[in-house]
Design a protein around this nucleic acid. Structure first.
Lengths: 336, 336
DNA sequence: TTGAAAGCGCTAACAT
DNA sequence: ATGTTAGCGCTTTCAA
């Protein structure tokens, strides 16, 4: 194995000079830097990761904890993981994959053995059992999603309030005056899952601001429930022409229900959704939607982490601005 | 930070004794082992991963290279990754995630820096550019999928020949005598993607063995193509009652096509598929199918790798036996 | 059954 | 701008 002393000898310098040339932590004269670079190339030198980690107390590895529970959207998670790995490489880090299954012990293990420098935790719940540990851990972490309190943590996610507002504003721009939010199953609100409530909040605020008639309808994740909601909406709000769906499971069934009730989408009813990009794009009627920007979340999470590793302070909460993608499911309100 | 010397002092033994107690590489008297264990617990000792890697030249980390190209089945990849991580943990290893994007340089980097002890490479192509590197690398690897030659490598995958046979035999058992294989797009065979040809091979061999009338039909991955194949099948093989589909993209469209042509599935036409479990199970008519057992592939890959790391020889090719799951799409041939 | 001590390959303080 | 050198925390020979 080629080591740093071999390179040093070959280049006629000391090992530390090679080390500094590699890390850039102190100025090296142009001339010796070139000699060192050539020696490295000729010998095919690669610094030993373990030795580096030991001497510098930096492994240059990040842990990524992926969710396992059912109900997660697999392609979204994958996209996110790929973004994290790609961004981590740009910052000269590698990514160690942990499953949720390993739980708190797994987090403690990779942190305490100095296997990783920092952690990214996906799918954080409102009262996630890992929160106390993450706060206490001697390594920085970034959480994807918001727990009840971000106090002492670093969290990042889509700004769901702004997403709710954005959908309403899009409908307003198209002339719609009576709108409804078809939301998550009731138990999600009862449980107090942060982002569902935030969508309601944004939706309602924007609707009020624009003096719309609006209503909110939790909905079970089943086609039959979608049908039921559609019927109720038409009965109770005959003037309804715009709907925001925040429940990916019923998006298609709801559109089907509207159409089988004689309404055309978007001719008679405009539908917008907050859901994974794929589902909006691949629907029978492609749906105008706000997606969770998983790639951006991944990149920004890595950036936050490297900043923390660099000693900079970062905000406890980072909210990503929503973007609405226009598709075939929304149109101007037709003349009454 | 608590280190091994702290534990040693606390337990009244030498550091080497603690090390040996931890690794089990030499016998330790019951009594001192207990004292050491207690000291470890009391002090909350965790061996430093980097120091370990440096001293033992083992990082206890495996690299997992995930595919990125479009056309991969994301949930299958995820399932596989989770299985790898879980199995790796059972063997006291962690998993470093690499993307295909990093290519050969990435493989070389993690191998040469001793970041990982061994590699698992997914989505291996017939003439994968990484093959020479993997053969030359100083670290063991396992490939998921089979290249043109497994010579000097360790490969694992579903036994696609047996899968083709199994589907035919299932249809034979139900009394079907005229069968067809609806396969991958023509270019897949031209490109010589190993597993597609192997399915044809198994299908044809089993059909011949049972003296069936059989035919093979490549099919583009588009609903319209499925419709076309269905029409041609009925025209050219009016006696056809059993179909094997090895093209997940057209599975549902093909069934739709049969039904819109007046055939009921499975009443008039039995359909079996070789495809991801999800797609077979979630189809409108749940499809009797052989799935790629991703979890098992992952586990076995890790086992092969740890065996190689332990110095044992392992076979170049490991073929996993296919299993057929009965669902609603196949039934006995109805009386003519 | 246990201990002593020499590294593993690198970084970073300290010197010049 | 560069060199010297003392560790980083662990494993593993060698010795007892």
């Amino acid at each position: 194995m080629v080591k740093i002393t071999d390179v040093a000898r070959h280049a006629g310098v000391s090992p530390s000079t090679v080390s500094y040339a590699l890390s850039g932590k102190r100025p090296i004269s142009e001339e010796t830097r070139l000699r060192i670079e050539e020696a490295i190339r000729e010998l095919g030198y690669r610094p030993h990761a373990g030795a580096r980690a030991l001497a510098s107390s930096r492994s240059n590895v990040l842990a990524l904890v992926m969710p396992l529970r059912s109900g997660i959207n697999v392609p979204v998670v994958m996209q996110f993981a790929v973004a994290v790995v790609t961004a981590a490489r740009r910052h000269d880090h590698d990514v160690l994959l942990l499953t949720q299954e390993e739980g708190e012990d797994g987090l403690r293990r990779v942190a305490d053995t100095a296997l990783v420098d920092a952690l990214i935790v996906m799918d954080v719940q409102l009262h996630d059992p890992r929160l106390p540990l993450l706060r206490a851990l001697n390594r920085p972490s970034v959480l994807i999603g918001f727990p009840a309190s971000a106090q002492g943590l670093t969290c990042i996610d889509l700004d769901f309030i702004a997403a709710g507002e954005l959908c309403v504003e899009h409908l307003v721009g198209l002339g719609h005056r009576v709108v409804a939010l078809v939301g998550s199953p009731p138990e999600v609100y009862v449980r107090g899952t942060g982002f569902a409530q935030r969508v309601v909040q944004g939706f309602t605020a924007a609707a009020d601001r624009h003096r719309l008639v609006s209503s909110v309808h939790p909905c079970e994740a089943a086609p039959a429930a979608a049908r039921g909601v559609a019927e109720r909406l038409l009965r109770e709000q005959p003037a309804l022409t715009g709907v925001v769906v925040h429940n990916e499971a019923v998006l298609e069934p709801l559109i089907d229900a509207f159409e089988s009730l004689g309404l055309r989408v978007p001719g008679d009813m405009s539908v917008t959704a907050i859901c994974p990009e794929e589902q909006a794009a691949d629907a029978r009627v492609p749906v105008t939607s706000v997606a969770v920007p998983s790639a951006e979340v991944g990149e920004r999470a890595v950036e936050l982490l490297t900043k923390k590793l660099g000693g900079s302070a970062v905000p406890e909460a980072t909210l990503l601005a929503p973007h609405l993608t226009l598709r075939a499911s929304t149109a101007p309100r037709s003349a009454p």
